[in-house]
């Protein structure tokens, strides 16, 4: 399995991840190597095997419907890059 620089750019865009242009080749090489490694598992016959998402075979615990949280806006927004009038600010969203 080998990834092209084009593939890397596409994935990087999906992940909204800036990758330096001069590094794209290296990523393509490294990622291809990793894919070769992980593809080894395709040798294993997994027919009829149930996928395992969690180590514990448990079901989801349910929380009673109670309001337990209080307004902590000031504390939460003290660590925000840009806020105004209680809102988080971002570059204009165009719909």
């Amino acid at each position: 399995m080998s990834l092209t620089t084009d593939d890397v750019n596409k994935i990087a865009h999906l992940a909204r991840l800036g990758v330096d242009i001069q590094d794209v080749d290296t990523y393509a090489h490294d990622l291809s190597g990793i894919l070769d490694l992980v593809t080894q598992m395709s040798q294993l016959n997994t027919e009829g095997v149930a996928p395992m998402a969690h180590p514990m075979e448990q079901s989801q615990r349910l929380r009673p419907d109670r309001v337990t949280e209080t307004n902590m806006r000031e504390k939460f927004q003290a660590i925000a890059p840009q806020v105004e009038a209680g809102l988080y600010l971002v570059p204009k969203v165009i719909e």
């Binding site: 990834l3 593939d7 890397v8 994935i11 990087a12 999906l14 992940a15 991840l17 990758v19 990523y27 490294d30 990622l31 990793i34 894919l35 992980v38």
Partner: peptide, 11 residues
């Protein structure tokens, strides 16, 4: 971190 995000996104 970037390598793993990229591999995970691809997978």
């Amino acid at each position: 971190v970037k390598r793993r995000i990229l591999i995970g996104t691809y997978a």
